[in-house]
Amino acid sequence: MTSTDEPRLRHVDCLGARGLHRMAYWEWGARDNPRVLVCVHGLSRQGRDFDVLARAMSDHCRVVCPDVVGRGESDRLADPSGYQIPAYVADMVTLLARLDARELNWVGTSMGGLIGLGLAALPGSPVRRLVLNDVGPAIEASALARIGSYLGVPVQWDSEAEAAAALWQISQGFGPHTPEQWLALTRPMLRRSTAADGRTVWVPHYDPAIAVPFRALTPAAAAAGEALLWQSYDALRIPTLLLRGAESDLLTARTAQQMRERGPRAELHEFPGVGHAPTLVAPEQVAVLREFLLRE
């Protein structure tokens, strides 16, 4: 079994309300390795966010990093109402069947953590270790408002550098990054497009319609969703690691403490100088994950 410097791009057909859609996933390491790690990104991100972590883990396991539908190389949905956690969980069940993974570990950032929580709480789930990166059952309304201020808003940029600068302005919570690290995180977030005047421009590599159900969320629906998430969390009986940016506006210290005391009694690790959410690029962040994921 050998590790590789670049991932393989593959696809799997998933069933939605209006038929089939293709979900892309990036695969690292040996395909025949029975040890599987699935890494799932945040709301408007994509699977290449995990390149650094995948390279660090591919000597030990097969690493699979999907582009959740509507993002990256995956299809966009005709009906935006399909952009919701239960539908994403169903897509991941299809992916796991393709992978033929009887047991696996899961790393989920923000939205990816909620998908993992939903999957891990299912009876008979193959998830054996769970990492929740800066997310829990209770999500702060102020953080949702911040994300909603830019999610799905039409934008275009004349260069990768201009795009990287603009994305950095809305991503300060990710914490310190070198210019090289940030550009590596930015490039997969962009796709080329043609402006009205014929110029080549760069635009975000996700369907703006993912914002439709996000903006339709009512306080009552949010409260009901939080109750269901706590129910799922309390049902977990697997080793769980909770990562938190010490300055996070989405996962509060109070919620993190509750997660230490309830359900699987998550092991908590905070990263100073970081908000929402740690990108798992810095060596010290990767080291924390490797220690937990490789623990016997």
Rank of each mutant, 00 (worst) to 15 (best):
Met189Tyr: 01
Ile115Gln: 10
Asp59Ile: 01
Arg254Ser: 15
Gly47His: 03
Thr252Ser: 15
Arg262Thr: 13
Leu77Ile: 05
Val203Met: 08
Gln231Ile: 08
Gly275Ile: 10
Cys65Gln: 07
Ala224Lys: 12
Glu180Pro: 12
Asp100Arg: 15
Pro7Gln: 10
Ser81Phe: 02
Gln172Thr: 15
Asp75Lys: 00
Arg8Trp: 02
Ala163Gln: 09
Trp26Glu: 07
Leu130Asn: 01
Pro179Ala: 07
Gly42Leu: 03
Leu294Ile: 00
Pro278Ala: 01
Tyr25Leu: 00
Val38His: 01
Ala211Glu: 11
Ala211Ser: 15
Trp182Glu: 10
Pro154Glu: 06
Glu73Gly: 00
Arg76Ser: 09
Glu160Ile: 11
Ile139Tyr: 00
Arg71Phe: 05
Ile85Glu: 06
Arg244Leu: 09
Ala209Thr: 08
Ala184Gln: 11
His276Phe: 09
Ile210Asn: 05
Ser74Asp: 04
Arg62Ala: 04
Ala266Gly: 01
Ala227Gly: 03
Arg129Leu: 04
Ser171Ile: 10
Leu95Asp: 08
Asp49Ala: 12
Asp249Met: 05
Ile210Phe: 04
Gly118Ile: 05
Gly116Tyr: 02
Phe271Leu: 14
Leu190Pro: 08
Ser159Lys: 11
Val69Trp: 00
Gly136Asp: 07
Thr178Asp: 10
Arg215Gly: 05
His41Asn: 14
Glu296Ala: 14
Val131Ser: 00
